[in-house]
Design a protein around this nucleic acid. Structure first.
Lengths: 338, 338
DNA sequence: TTTGCGCATGTAAGCGCTTACACTCAAGTT
DNA sequence: AACTTGAGTGTAAGCGCTTACATGCGCAAA
């Protein structure tokens, strides 16, 4: 505990300005309820004392914090960066602040951080994906915390969401890949346990695979966490198999970047020897060589819409709706027709 | 404003357990001061009510939040990710929570967020770099907020810091580049205004350049913000000059990745036609092709040491010291001897 | 048995704000 | 002249915790 210097409080300001604390509070929060003369007087006192309101006291007295919390699975790569950025911009414009935590893809940790943010007085929450313990949703409901789920869309749900259909999107890409002549697909998926987006994407590939009459057992799949290095490692494994894949479909762009890097190290020419696809269309995707064919996700739009929905929920206008955004295939050089 | 359901408070728990609020509080914070029997009784009540302490009330009453704040310039790329991760891990282990904001490289915004975090009751702050308005430091001092500056080291300063000498490190790299025969260097720097790390790195190159007897006017420099795309753009400009550079030295790895990508698009062979260097050694650095020669920064160590120093400051052991960490040149394929 | 002491617990005073309600007073109504 | 009205302000009751201090108790020492 460091010594606490004298920090000015509302009372100090009230004394200095010769008014009551209520008036000072009004000057700070509802200017229109105060006469111009008093306003000036109070603001001068605020200035000269260097007063800043104590956030905790305010949140406690007002029973709302104008803060919304977001828990994302990771900050380590850029997957969520752009969307979160847009989310925050929109929030700030509406007078809300954002608190971000990262759950490291661990449901337990996420649950803990949800409680933490709620305990901190978050007025609302942004969560990624929909798959979590029912208990968590119950907790949120009991506390009456408005919540929006992003990066996923669940039309049939009781939850507000804004996102896209990971499964359909990946299926679309897989259909395209197969249509282009590929019959040996190697899959590098994110770890599906506890990650519904990864699970849905993998399911999308499998849907397409089976729809084209192939057997699930003939589709090699490696699950690994979203790190560039892991993409590289998984690729090594995949190309050691008896049946060499003609294309590697990755659960996201980060894995794909690792694949491309390792492929070159091992002497493969992408896409002539082997094709590669990603998902997300992060900035990196068009700067790797060859540029990555991937599924483009409208990150900024997603963040913006999420913010709008959440604020709507908090301020009691707007219902729990699901926004389904459109994604499309971004064809680039890493995928070749056979 | 959504309706507020009945959220259990300390009082509710006290009633349910048939003890006073003080005792419940003790059970939660200083178990050893309470008899085992009461502890059990209280904990059962906590469980059955699903009680979670109100953070704001706690922070307010206890005058400390066990929260520390960090403000980083950007979350958009991985520059700070690893260091921050280590920082957080260490904090958690010591019972502290981390709040992160991003200032988008804008000093004004940073100043605002500092106040915001302080108003939220942060017990301490982690800031990046040292260059900021004296007013900000005064504010921090007046409020008695322990602060550690990271990604920089300022031995002569009154501030605690943990980092490395950006200028010396970059100079070391530039010396190496020149020693390897390069005489035409093109520089792509971060925007130095408001970013001391970028400024120091640029200065490091200039130091070396002049020390080798060249004129500053002959060193082309482009400043641009740290985005992969901007690296690409800057490269285009640089190679349009009359005197073609034989090497592009970049302010960080992100810019360098952009350069490598664009160089290939324009038909350059890196490193045979042109060499490229970066700074930071983020994960991407060894996965671009060719792998990037860069300055390796011990991000995790920096985060860990920063956490230790800060907690030391907060808990009144430990002085304001400067930790200077060692960096080294990571030689990879993107830099070639002429 | 009495005294003293320390442990476990309770009492109650805040922490710095917001806000319902009460009050004052000048201007407008009838 | 008496009465509304409402804008501007003040009073004071919390918000949900922590903690200094007071209290009560059992037990060892005298």
């Amino acid at each position: 505990m460091h010594e606490t210097p004298d920090i000015p409080t509302l009372d100090d300001v009230a004394n200095a300005a010769g008014v009551s604390t209520a008036t000072v509070s009004r000057c700070l929060n509802e200017k229109q309820k105060v006469s111009p003369k008093t306003l000036t007087k109070v603001m001068e006192a605020v200035e000269s004392l260097g007063y800043t309101p104590n956030f905790n006291a305010r949140a406690m007295a007002a029973k709302q914090s104008h803060t919304i919390g977001a828990i994302i699975p990771t900050m380590e790569n850029a997957i969520f960066a752009r969307g979160l950025q847009a989310f925050q911009e929109k929030l700030l414009a509406q007078g809300y602040n954002l608190l971000v935590s990262s759950s490291a893809y661990q449901p337990k940790l996420e649950a803990q951080q949800i409680r933490e943010l709620v305990a901190r007085g978050a007025d609302g929450l942004l969560l990624i994906g929909y798959e979590r313990d029912e208990e968590v949703y119950e907790y949120l409901a009991r506390r009456g915390i408005p919540t929006v789920l992003a990066w996923a869309s669940i039309p049939d749900s009781e939850h507000a969401s804004v996102g896209f259909d990971n499964r359909a999107a990946m299926r679309m890409l897989a259909d395209k890949v197969i249509e282009m002549g590929h019959r040996q697909i190697g899959v590098i998926s994110g770890i599906v346990d506890g990650n519904d987006r990864a699970a849905q994407r993998l399911a999308g590939i499998q849907d397409s695979w089976q729809a084209h009459g192939f057997r699930l057992g003939d589709l090699p799949v490696i699950q690994t966490s979203y790190e560039i290095e892991n993409g590289a490692l998984a690729f090594e494994q995949l190309v050691e198999a008896d049946v060499k894949p003609t294309v590697i479909m990755c659960g996201n762009d980060v894995l794909a970047a690792g694949v491309i890097s390792k492929a070159r190290d091992l002497g493969f020419d992408v896409p002539n020897d082997i094709s590669v696809t990603g998902f997300d269309d992060i900035e990196l995707a068009k700067h790797v060589f060859p540029a990555l064919t991937t599924v483009h996700v409208p990150h900024r739009q997603m963040g913006r819409v999420a913010a709008e929905s959440l604020i709507g929920l908090i301020e009691n206008r707007g219902e729990k709706v699901s926004h389904q955004l459109d994604v499309f295939i971004e064809m680039r050089a890493s995928l070749r027709r056979l």
